[in-house]
Design a protein around this nucleic acid. Structure first.
Lengths: 222, 222
DNA sequence: TCGGCACTACCTGATATCCGGTATGGAATT
DNA sequence: AATTCCATACCGGATATCAGGTAGTGCCGA
């Protein structure tokens, strides 16, 4: 027991981490362990685990990698905020593409960091978020400014439903309709219908084209 | 000053890190900072910086991310070992593709970890390497075993033939075997054989995975 | 000259894709 | 209340994938 630290930080910021690379998870955890006002209360390797974790640990902040398999960071954020509206989400990504940024912010993220950011940006972002501010790393702020200048109107980025995006991501991982059905707890035939609707909407005609689309959209990583 | 730690670890393992993501760099650094027998003496964001760093700090071990811009981890490792033959290199990658693994080991790396490995694998790998052992994470060991079973002889990098690359590129464009056959003026059944050989060589099991491979290899664009 | 390898080609069979159709329940919108 | 959209589910059929096998030709290195 350490009375000094208790009096200095009576309430530490409770953080959960989500990334599909366990090693990165461990590394980020130890990065944040140095901050005495921040406590990492759990980590998850995909969106489903993140949802379960958030329900169990009731964190203040979730740091979410965008490029996760099965359920990516964008979907995870939407579902997370639907259940826990008070939760604050910080997106972490290798890229600063406008599409990712916009979709993640639309999904309700309050912060966006690229992995090329300096290491001390993460704790700074967490503290800023906890004060109710929005935190964007410089690269992302730049792309946002460009986006705002180029297009004031919001274009239809997401023409696929949430379920369809789930299916696209899993198809692009190389799974068959039957396996995807088991994963999503629906019939394989339903997955088939989703796939056909997706292909008709996007004018695609093969799994290869679908996979490329998923990669361009960040629904899976190459 | 702490005499105890000095006497306990008179010679700490000197490590340098290379990754294009600064945040990952900082996170890995803090992950290793917990290990009292390991000292991170520097980090670099690309191959050139790594070469300069190694010349300046004379480390025992270099942990190198494969996916770096301008000079990737494979080239960097080759050049690094040409100048510092005693240096021990551990490859760090998001993927466990046989091609990457083989090329990295051919380049002289003594260890290979995927980022999905557990966080404590990195310090374990570093210690193993320092004892002159080779350290491969389970995923990589698996692909190596398959490679060894397929080819008893130590052939470098089971690469694809020119024709197989043609077929991969066209498959990744979404064409069927029959159409590809017409395009290449060979029978569709021959294209089928090429596809099967490719998939066996690369340990892929679907067009989606094949498409991702083609994109990573630059055989087609996303 | 022999073995290995790449490229070519065909056969069989199980499974999957791809493209139609129909239909129900729920949620959101009008 | 009616409409529209999404998600769910099933049927049928043509085509393709995926995974085995065999086999001939040509080229190159041991």
């Amino acid at each position: 027991m350490n009375p000094e630290s208790i009096s200095t930080f009576p309430v530490r910021i409770r953080v959960v981490l989500a990334d599909d690379h366990k090693m990165i998870l461990a590394a980020l955890r130890s990065l944040l362990a140095k901050e005495s006002d921040i406590e990492v209360v759990g980590d998850a390797a995909d969106g489903h685990a993140l949802l379960e974790l958030a329900g169990r640990t009731a964190p203040d902040v979730a740091v979410v990698d965008i490029g996760m398999p099965s359920m990516n960071g964008i979907e995870a954020t939407q579902q997370l905020l639907a259940v826990h509206p008070a939760l604050k989400v910080i997106a972490l990504s290798a890229y600063s593409d406008r599409r990712f940024v916009m979709e993640m912010l639309d999904a309700g993220a309050r912060g966006y960091l690229v992995k090329a950011s300096a290491g001390d940006e993460l704790p700074r972002a967490i503290r800023a978020i906890m004060q109710g501010r929005t935190y964007l790393c410089p690269e992302v702020a730049g792309t946002l400014v460009e986006a705002a200048r180029g297009k004031a109107r919001g274009e239809p980025t997401a023409q696929l439903s949430r379920r369809e995006r789930d299916v696209v991501a899993l198809l692009a991982e190389g799974h068959s309709s039957l396996v995807i059905g088991e994963r999503l707890h629906i019939a394989g035939s339903t997955v088939e219908v989703h796939r056909r609707n997706i292909m008709r909407k996007l004018n695609l005609h093969s799994i290869a084209e679908l996979t490329k689309y998923a990669i361009r959209e960040g629904l899976t990583s190459p």
